[in-house]
Computed example of a mutant assay.
Amino acid sequence: MGRTAQFDHDTVVRAARDVFWDRGYAETGVAELEAATGLTRSSLYHAFGSKKGVFEAVVAAYLDDVVRTRLAPLLVPDAAPTALADYLAEMRTAIASGSPRARSGCLLLNAACAPVVDDEPDVRALVVGYTAELRAGVAAGVARARADLAHDASAALAEVVASLVIAALAQARTDPGAAVRALDAASAAVRAWA
């Protein structure tokens, strides 16, 4: 009979998340995960199966704690017409603040930009699922903010806004100014789209 885990799962996942967020999936080694979590390689593998298993646990927590928390106001049935503007403004403020977490960019988009995504279909699927959730949230926000638009125009605007949000998240790490401009362009598009 195996030993029971002698660690707090959430604490370990948060520690691993910080490493993956700072270094990316491809550049993170198991030794770095050991140092950050305080667990040995065998404990990590016993608990998560592999480095990819640790990353999958990190992504699940990231989606719940960060992404879905921010998207939730866009997806509730009685979402305010200002929900999308609020979402874009909150993201803009976070990136413009220059906080360490904002300077790290988006955990999943950082992973998407690494060559490993081509070799890891499970990681690629996580990123694709994430962007689908983001696009659905933005589409719901656009529908509430611009109820005056026909379905095709609303869908086109949602695609433009989601693409600008993804661009902003991808640029937050290397060019926060460009990320802020992308979010400003997204807000302007919502107001001006005809």
Rank of each mutant, 00 (worst) to 15 (best):
G24R: 10
T69G: 09
V19M: 10
D22W: 08
A94G: 10
V142A: 06
A162E: 09
D78Q: 14
G38W: 01
A186H: 02
Y62N: 02
T93G: 11
A182L: 04
C106Y: 02
S50K: 07
G53K: 03
L157A: 08
S104D: 13
G98N: 10
S42E: 11
R135L: 06
K51T: 01
D175L: 07
L134S: 01
V161W: 01
A61T: 06
L149R: 04
E32A: 14
L33N: 02
A192M: 13
P73I: 09
G98P: 07
P115M: 11
E56T: 10
V138S: 01
L157T: 10
A158H: 03
A57N: 01
Y62K: 00
L33T: 04
A85H: 13
R68F: 08
D10P: 04
G38Q: 03
P81D: 13
D86L: 09
C113D: 15
L88D: 06
A5K: 05
K51H: 02
L71K: 09
S42K: 08
T40G: 05
P77D: 14
V59C: 02
G2V: 15
L183S: 06
T93M: 11
R3L: 14
V76K: 13
R144C: 10
L109W: 06
R70E: 15
V30G: 03
D148A: 05
R101A: 15
V19C: 10
P121V: 06
A114H: 13
A31N: 11
A72H: 14
A125T: 08
K52W: 04
A158S: 12
T69P: 01
G141D: 01
T40D: 02
A47V: 00
E27L: 14
V12Q: 00
L75M: 15
A36Y: 01
D118G: 14
N110V: 13
E120R: 07
L183V: 08
L63H: 07
A158E: 02
V128A: 14
L169A: 14
A172M: 06
L149N: 02
A94Q: 12
L108Y: 07
V58G: 01
A179Y: 03
F48M: 04
V12R: 00
A5M: 12
D65H: 06
V116M: 09
D148M: 04
A79E: 06
F20L: 14
V59H: 00
F55T: 01
R103S: 11
R101N: 07
G2W: 12
S50I: 06
P100N: 10
D122C: 08
A156Q: 13
L39K: 00
A80K: 07
P115E: 15
V54Q: 01
A150K: 07
L126H: 09
G141H: 00
R191E: 13
L71D: 10
T37M: 00
